[in-house]
Design a protein around this nucleic acid. Structure first.
Length: 562
RNA sequence: GAUUCCGUAGCUCAGCUGGUAGAGCAAUACACUUUUAAUGUAUGGGCCCUGGGUUCGAAUCCCAGCGGAAUCACCA
């Protein structure tokens, strides 16, 4: 594959060759011993200490016989000082004059041995006694600069490039790195918290024959050996409950789930959910557990329970406010939804100017009212409890009111962060709930659930009373890192594939002849003036890139645009 | 899916009511021994997203497409 190289890329290839000609290996195999990190040297200044550091050279200030450069490693940046006569005490000054000044480029990895000192201006730096090229960079990095007032200039900001080339984003934008370090910390704090309770971290199938545990459109795939369809999981709930049936008291999984739906600021086709199930507990216990967990995470990650998200100040200090869904709706709309029929709810919706669809049942209608009028109001963490039974097919009936369920969602900053139940463990009730879901799906709700017979069988063997919770990890990390978009908390958010197809003149000519309606291949051939070899090559190129389609119908070979 | 905005040098961006492309950083060359957005001088670098149209002439106006962002719709 030939590609056009920019002037700077050509230049770097040239210096690469010069480096080789000087007998220097630009990609050495040998390990480089690192004794210090940039930040640790700055944090604990020890004058004259000898250190070995490694990283990318991010800036160079050459002043004749002495130079400053900045070295960036995983911890941050430190200034390094190159003095010609200290680096090359003998007559031969090529290491400084040639290698350092001319053959090193910004972005190259180098290893440095030197002594720590402070410059006249007071910046902690490393006086280089020797250096090694560790890896040559052939593409120039975008290089944001920060001035004395801390303003960043020429920042690398284009979201498309940042997401598609996250490696560059990470090198050049330190804030981005911080976000992902925080993300990782959130996970480990949660793990430790669960460990203290003796819960077991488990793994359950991602490829599922029945995509259960939630209502969403799955990604479909196919297993060749078994010749059956398989689905990427939309949730792992039903498998974790099977493990509770099997006798574990507490199981959790950090799970990638997949949903074949729209993408936007808060939705990515693959996303991470932490699900936890604990035997012999109910949703009230789970509320207390959750507020303690979140408080702990905030303290560990942000150092405080008071966080700022966008324009809002939010307190993650336990305990959190609790309110039933009925009260929430009453409070924000003035309507009491208790014991209302589908018709009455529809009337309330239209009074509130909420659009409804005929396939919406009671659950969906109430959900709509809540989502439309209430959800956004809960900035500080709030448990919304006691959801109507129609919208919670896996949740146990409320102990005091059989038309409600023992469910809560945790709302923070107006968004759902967690969803939890006293889990339904009555197998007969569960079967009926699945069946009424099925009726909903026959009404046109394409998100109603499939029936998982094996899961019902497991319940029939008996599942202890259990409470379970699912926490949307991406959204939680968004909150804790004050990021507005899910793409900022995923290393590699889903993007439309880059189009790299480059067409020759002939390709374009052929393409312009083809239309959406098929024509005989021989007819198309006669309209283009080229050799048969060129024609064949070009056609292969076009079909491979799915721009035209060549196929046979009876004895005719046809071509058309895709 | 709808609407709006955007696509120009490696990066960040100018480029007016159409007249063949500009800056800063980065690059190249030279000078400079404690600088720090180092500095000074000189030089090179562009399929102006793609394809059509209008025009004597299009980065600029029009249409279509591709890619991205925001808002909305959808979303247990």
């Amino acid at each position: 594959m030939s590609q056009e190289l920019s002037e700077q890329e050509e230049q770097r290839r040239h210096t690469l060759q010069k480096i080789r000609e000087m007998g220097i290996e630009p990609y050495p195999a040998q390990a480089f011993e690192v004794t210090h990190l940039a930040e640790s040297i700055k944090a604990e200044f020890v004058e004259h200490q000898t250190v070995k550091i490694a990283g990318r050279m991010m800036s160079q200030r050459i002043m004749g016989k002495a130079s400053f450069a900045e070295l960036q490693d995983s911890s941050g940046r430190i200034q390094v000082y190159f003095n010609r006569d200290e680096l090359c005490p003998n007559e031969d000054k090529t290491l400084y004059n040639e290698v350092f000044k001319k053959l090193l480029d910004l972005g190259d990895f180098i290893g440095i041995t030197g002594r720590v000192f402070k410059t006249q201006v007071g910046e902690i730096s490393v006086n280089v006694t020797s250096f090694t090229l560790l890896s040559k960079a052939l593409k120039p990095l975008p290089l944001p600069k920060t001035d004395a007032e801390g303003n960043t200039h020429d920042a690398f900001t284009d979201p498309e490039l940042r997401y598609r080339q996250r490696y560059v984003d990470l090198v050049v934008n330190p804030k981005v790195k911080e976000t992902f370090v925080t993300r990782s910390k959130v996970f480990s704090v949660m793990r430790n918290f669960f460990d203290q309770y003796g819960f077991l971290e488990v793994e359950t199938p991602i490829l599922q024959p029945i995509p259960g545990g939630a209502a969403a459109r799955p990604f479909t795939t196919h297993h060749n050996a078994l010749d059956i369809p398989l689905y990427l999981r939309i949730a792992n709930e039903l498998y974790l409950k099977r493990l509770i049936v099997g006798g574990f008291d507490g199981v959790f999984e950090f799970a990638k789930d997949f949903r074949n739906e729209g993408m936007d600021r808060t939705h990515n086709p693959e996303f991470t959910v932490m699900e936890l199930y604990v035997a012999y507990k109910d949703y009230r216990w789970m509320m207390e557990f959750t507020e303690n967990l979140l408080q702990e995470i905030a303290l560990a990650v942000c150092g405080t329970t008071e966080i700022r998200v966008g324009q809002n100040n939010i307190s993650l200090k336990a305990p959190f406010k609790r309110i039933t869904m009925r009260e929430a709706i009453l409070e924000h709309t003035g309507y009491d939804i208790a014991d209302k029929s589908e018709e009455q709810l529809r009337a309330i919706c239209s009074a509130l100017n909420i659009e409804t669809q005929p396939e919406m049942g009671i659950g969906k209608l109430i959900d709509e009212i809540f989502g439309e009028k209430c959800e956004g109001n809960y900035l500080n963490p709030t448990f919304i409890t006691d959801y109507p039974i129609e919208m919670s097919p896996l949740c146990k009936r409320h102990r005091e009111n059989p038309s409600l369920t023992e469910r809560f969602e945790l709302m923070i900053n107006g968004k759902e962060v967690a969803n939890a139940y006293s889990e339904l463990n009555d197998p007969i009730d569960q079967r009926e709930r699945f069946e009424s879901q099925l009726q909903l799906s026959e009404r046109g709700d394409n998100e109603a659930m499939f029936i998982d017979q094996d899961f019902l069988r497991a319940l029939e063997y008996g599942m202890p009373p259990t409470s379970g919770i699912g926490i949307g990890m991406d959204r939680l990390v968004m909150l804790l890192t004050n990021n507005h978009s899910i793409q900022e908390v995923l290393f590699f958010p889903q993007m439309r594939p880059e189009k790299t197809v480059s067409l020759s003149e002939l390709d374009k000519a052929i393409l312009s002849i083809c239309t959406d309606t098929a024509q005989l291949l021989s007819d198309a051939r006669s309209k283009v003036d080229c050799s048969n070899k060129q024609w064949d090559l070009s056609l292969k190129h076009l079909t491979k890139n799915q721009l035209v389609k060549v196929y046979k119908e009876q004895d005719d070979v046809l071509i058309k645009k895709v």
